[in-house]
């Protein structure tokens, strides 16, 4: 049995690590976009991967969704799959945020560009704080109707046991976009995370 739960101290610790990692990602994004990114405290939640397909299918039921999926591999059992979810409306606005001309890059390329900045900067920032190093596989874009998103998530939730949900909202000077980031991780990775959090907590 995997203990899903984090203690209050572990949760507070993880939240702070996420805040610092998100700050790095925003800074990278702001430099890339040459604009100011307004940062909000990201809400984090640890849930069972099994409930993920349904919960996301429901959350995005009203509109199309695009997903960018990217694997990551670290040390001491820290590995998993990072997924960024964009509502179609937001995905279309990304070209404007990125300052691309309509014919300059496809929507898939735009999503890949912005997602790799967010995912790799965020995860590398998180890993650094728990003394780990992370490598990445190439990102994959899944843009389609809700049914196949649910199917894709179902396949992923067979492989992974836990999901760390991080709600990210970015307000870029004159344009708002929202995306959800989900980190799917196996049971042994959460043990490694818990150990790393305890190490930090024991130091203070």
């Amino acid at each position: 049995m995997i203990d899903l739960s984090l203690t209050e101290d572990q949760r507070d610790c993880l939240q702070e690590l996420v805040n610092v990692a998100m700050g790095r990602a925003s800074d990278k994004l702001a430099r890339f976009l040459q604009t100011f990114v307004h940062l909000r405290v990201p809400a984090i939640e640890l849930i069972s991967a099994q409930v993920l397909p349904q919960s996301f299918a429901e959350a995005y039921a009203d509109q199309g969704v695009s997903m960018v999926s990217q694997g990551f591999y670290g040390e001491r059992g820290v590995r998993g799959e990072s997924i960024l979810f964009y509502r179609s409306h937001d995905a279309q606005g990304i070209a404007r945020i990125l300052g691309y001309e309509p014919e300059e890059a496809t929507e898939v390329e735009q999503l890949t560009d912005i997602s790799s900045i967010l995912t790799t900067t965020f995860l590398s920032g998180l890993a650094e704080q728990i003394d780990n190093h992370i490598g990445y596989s190439a990102p994959r874009v899944v843009t389609s109707d809700d049914t196949s998103i649910e199917k894709h998530l179902q396949q992923l939730s067979f492989t992974w046991e836990l999901a760390l949900k991080v709600d990210i909202s970015y307000q870029v000077t004159d344009y708002a976009f929202h995306c959800d980031m989900v980190l799917l991780i196996p049971g042994e990775a959460i043990h490694s995370f818990q150990q790393a959090l305890d190490n930090i907590l024991n130091e203070i």
Binding site: N19, M22, A30, F36
Partner: peptide, 9 residues
């Protein structure tokens, strides 16, 4: 003391 390290901030 902040994680929001953007130069503009």
């Amino acid at each position: 003391v902040s994680a929001d390290i953007q130069p503009a901030m």
